[in-house]
Write a protein that binds this DNA or RNA. Structure first.
Length: 565
RNA sequence: UGAGGUAUAACUCAGCUGGUAGAGUACUGUGCUUUUAACACGGGAGUCUUGGGUUCGAUUCCCAAUGCCUCAACCA
């Protein structure tokens, strides 16, 4: 392993700490009494505190020094004064341990008392400190001036995602995003729990990947010797629970889809699905807009949230518009009760790419996605989807050919998808069979038939409304992040390249063999014998000399290559 | 999958028409007891992403590969 100069220096300091009898990785607990934020919020002159955290900056001025300690809550300034720390004759702890052997990034514990500096900053006067963990690798270190400008920000996305731990240490905004993410899920839990709903867990490994249209990941169970799929949705399992007599269930479901990755898609992502018995999609819209309003308020104290260039207002209620009305409004075409061929014609007029495998559902989806979706920036419920694109949704109570379904659009993207759930087992079987036909036509995302789910429906599922909310997307919207990688701690990445081996390649071995035979050989002779190009020769001989296998001697007679003794 | 962009010190980035690379921060040495992007004066630190090619000579030009980014495509 090749260590940089700074890493070597830190390893030397580690040795010196041990020589001074200081364990750089002590086992005992450290009796922390305060966080940095509490100190600032509840300041009292002279109050004694014990704090711990990471050393993030130092301003050394001879016998005294200011530094910043970062803990889970933020940063606090600490003041190291030689004579406060070393009250006797021996000044080693300040001069050596603090000044020479500590580095930025080290984790230390401090016992001290509060005071305010001449400039008025709340500061901890260090009375004693302990090394809690020596950091061997230097941190990327952004600096912020008093106007809030950040210099040398750690901003290479590749490094930030691969080394999220470092990202979290040096970029406070990143940490804040993830705190908000958890706050969002907590608000949702509180909201549904207050309604008496039950949080549940259902299988991630499923024999039939159902509840959505997507390509699944497949794995294999050895004992049962059968394929299993990572779930693409949990919908059908939650409905089984409604059949079983739970009136309200929800689950934060990690779902997996074997599809493309970009700044809004990750192979694993989180959807919150909720099902409530004896409700319909109108009720679900009322509840959902209240929920989103509450989330915005809890996070930001206002219903208005900035996302990119848009200020989104989550204040309920939201506009509700039929998908066919939306299409009519933005394209001028009325698709209601049009045949598959008529719609295909319209798609061609709209210059959309369609092919014979696409049914009515897919084509309408295409038109809406291309022509309408981007217009819905403020929260809008798009409702009443055609039956062909909604195989799990109850038929509309009054509009022929439509279903009781809505999608919530925000920032031109789908944030939630919900229905009055189809609970007629015969209708459901027919819809699955329709899907089977689509699949035979070549639609590789059409749904499988889940016989056990149909059996459950035959026992009778009460009228139910269900919803799925994309938690990653919701977090993006609520934290003003345009990429899903920013709201996932560890987004999926291609594997890091392996470091090249130091073993000799064939050319190097061949050249070395010649040298071994001749013991000492003229450089130019060797070069022409090797038959290598200039560049290749250069690389080869440098590699050999660098690894101390051969050396080049310059004499009056010319350059000679010989073995290293 | 396609089209662009990019890869140089631990971090952020310069580097002209080919001649072994610089700055700020960080590190290191000296000084400095209320500073705050601390300061002052020194110092050292690099497989110029990888592999080929052209050339006397390539970080630079050419070819290819790889990672990352952007935009398309795909995506309930």
């Amino acid at each position: 392993m090749q260590l940089s100069e700074q890493e070597l220096v830190r390893r030397e300091k580690l040795v010196k700490l041990r020589e001074l009898g200081i364990d750089p990785y002590p086992a005992n607990l450290y009796p922390v009494t305060y966080y940095s934020k509490q100190i600032k919020d509840r300041y009292a002159e002279g109050k004694e505190v014990v704090i711990a955290g990471r050393l993030m900056s130092r301003r050394i001025q001879g016998k005294a020094s200011f530094a910043e300690l970062q803990d889970a809550e933020g940063r606090i300034q600490v003041y190291f004064n030689r004579d406060e720390i070393c009250t006797g004759e021996d000044k080693t702890k300040y001069n050596e341990v603090y000044k020479k052997l500590l580095d930025i990034g080290d984790i230390i514990g401090i016992k001290g008392a509060l005071f305010k500096t001449q400039v008025g900053e709340i500061t901890v006067m260090v009375k004693d400190f302990d090394v809690l963990t020596k950091a061997l690798r230097p941190l990327p270190l952004p600096k912020t001036d008093k106007d809030g400008n950040v210099y040398d920000e750690f901003n290479d996305p590749e490094l930030r995602y691969r080394q999220r731990y470092a990202d979290l240490i040096v970029n406070p905004r990143v940490k804040d995003t993830f705190v908000k993410r958890t706050k969002i899920t907590n608000v949702i839990r509180d909201f549904y729990n207050a309604m008496g709903f039950l949080e549940v867990e259902t299988p991630i490994l499923q024999p039939i990947p159902g509840g959505a249209a997507a390509r699944p990941f497949i794995t294999h169970h050895n004992t049962l010797d059968m394929p299993l799929y990572l779930r693409i949705a949990n919908e059908l399992y939650l409905k089984r629970l409604i059949v079983g007599g739970f009136d309200g269930v929800y689950e934060f479901s990690k779902d997996f889809r074997n599809e493309g990755m970009d700044r809004t898609h990750n192979p694993e992502f989180t959807v919150m699905e909720m099902y409530a018995a004896y409700k319909d999609y109108n009720w679900m819209m009322d509840v959902t807009e209240r929920l989103l309003e509450k989330i915005a308020l809890e996070l930001h104290g206002t219903t208005k949230v900035q996302f990119g260039e848009h200020l989104i207002d989550y204040k309920a209620p939201y506009q509700r518009i039929g998908i066919l009305d939306a299409i009519k409004e933005h394209t001028g075409y009325d698709l209601y009760q049009k045949s598959e061929d008529e719609i295909r014609e319209i798609c061609k007029k709209l210059e959309l790419e369609v092919d014979e495998t696409m049914g009515i559902g897919k084509m309408i989806d295409e038109i809406f996605g291309e022509k309408c979706e981007p217009h819905y920036v403020q929260p809008t419920f798009i409702i009443d989807y055609p039956v062909e694109m909604s195989p799990l949704t109850k038929k509309h109570r009054s509009k022929e050919g439509l279903t009781e379904r809505f999608e919530l659009m925000v920032n031109g993207k789908e944030l939630a998808n919900a229905y009055s759930e189809l609970n007629d087992p015969i209708d459901q079987r027919e819809r699955f069979e329709e899907q089977l036909k689509l699949s035979e036509k070549g639609d590789d995302e059409a749904m499988f038939i889940d016989q056990d789910f149909l059996r459950a429906l035959e026992y009778g599922m009460p009228p139910t409304s269900g919803i799925g909310i994309g938690i990653d997307r919701l977090t993006m919207f609520m934290t003003n992040n345009e990429s899903i990688q920013e709201v996932l701690f560890f987004p999926q990445m291609k594997p890091e390249q392996k470091t090249p081996s130091v073993a000799l390649n064939d050319e190097e071995k061949a050249v070395l063999a010649v040298i071994q035979k001749e013991e000492k050989i003229d450089l130019n002779t060797l070069k022409s014998q090797s038959g290598l190009s200039n560049k290749k020769w250069d690389k080869t001989i440098k590699h050999l000399t660098k690894n101390n296998l051969a050396k080049v001697n310059k004499t009056e007679k010319g350059l000679f290559v010989e073995l290293v003794d």
